[in-house]
Design a protein around this nucleic acid. Structure first.
Lengths: 208, 208
DNA sequence: AAGCAATCACCCAAAACGGGTGATTTTAAC
DNA sequence: GTTAAAATCACCCGTTTTGGGTGATTGCTT
């Protein structure tokens, strides 16, 4: 029985905290080195705990899980953070991912899923429950009923990357006047009259 | 034994095609209504097949899986496409997601994982193998060693969204001159002298 | 034959941009 | 409690970009 994956659990709900602990302690190569009810409590101890995996509740008193991620990654760059959450709002998911979470599980995940996910993450993989995967994938999907033509979409894409019309023209090997002409049509179709509005509308409607 | 999830398999490798077919046909509520060696072959038949799930190989002769996704979604908007692939380059993953794939499995996925994923996707979820999840998550993670300060990052973020300095100033309730000052510092730190270069560098280095 | 997409042209005034140089205040770290 | 870094604002300059109007040509698709 070799325990080589060191796990820390930070979860304010004591029932859940204990449940996770007993679940994971029973796995052969898992070792729950410590559990905490808040990040503020865990903060100073984490360096000694030196976890490979940190299970982190996103809703907590004091420092929230979201705020805690970058701090944890700062003091323990090699640890993998797995977020536990009840809800899965798009904003929270992306903030967690941006801050450096390696996994994202909703609390309705089965015991098996949790154990599996820790293995995957410890091996350098990513873990997402199906709810989260759905949110992430949806965020990528473009609207297939865009009013913009292929060329217009291409041009708006480049503009959304911060390029000027002149740069777009150079990159596409067309005249500046042509780009201007396309942009005018884009503005009419999207009913806007500026770059930023066009980008905003096109992004919210998933045209780009 | 009620077969209610209709599945179509499009995969040019006949061995794999048959393997998937027999694997999935044995599942109680799955019904493999047809299999094809290429999308061009499948194209006209898909309307009659009316699959709930389409398993699609990404590397195929003729129309590639990537090109096929939007066409499939066009003629069968309600079908869920699950991509099968050997490799998992970031570009392919994102193109598939953008085009409307609901799932993404590498071919080393276990039989159980495949069966599970189809269930999840059929229920409206998303499915990703751990390799893919890792790629997706990595793409989100920002560089924690950015030379930019919090405010500078915030401002560059807004500029990258297409806003002008004036709009940024209004939004952050600070003076235009302050924004200009920050932007100047950003340009120095990133060693650039234009919006588009700053955005480009900051994005490739994951500062924003 | 008609319509749409993509291409280029010229006019105009307003807005935004990039660079320089400098100052003050607030915040954070040692 | 000092000191450094971050955030704030100010005014100079000339150049580039932007948005709007109006119109034309070519090619593809239906």
């Amino acid at each position: 029985m070799n325990k080589n994956i060191r796990i820390v659990i930070i979860e304010d709900d004591s029932v859940l905290r204990m449940a996770y602990k007993s679940l994971l302690s029973d796995v052969d190569d898992y070792s729950v080195v410590n559990t905490y009810a808040s990040f503020d409590e865990a903060k100073k101890e984490l360096i000694n705990d030196n976890p490979d995996i940190t299970l982190l509740d996103i809703e907590m008193p004091g420092t929230t899980g979201l705020e805690a991620i970058p701090i944890i990654k700062k003091i323990l760059p090699q640890t993998h953070v797995i977020i536990l959450t009840v809800f899965d709002s798009e904003e929270k998911v992306f903030n967690a991912l941006i801050n450096g979470a390696s996994g994202f599980l909703t609390k309705n995940s089965s015991s098996i899923k949790i154990i599996e996910s820790i293995h995957e993450v410890a091996q350098g993989g990513g873990a997402m429950s199906m709810n989260i995967a759905r949110v992430v994938m949806r965020s990528f999907q473009k609207n297939l009923d865009s009013p913009l033509t292929k060329r217009e979409t291409e041009i708006l894409d480049l503009i959304a990357e911060g390029q000027t019309k002149t740069q777009v023209a150079d990159q596409l090997f067309i005249d500046l006047e042509t780009v201007r002409s396309h942009v005018k049509n884009i503005y009419i179709k999207l009913d806007v009259n500026s770059k930023s509005d066009a980008i905003k509308i096109a992004k919210t409607k998933k045209f780009i």
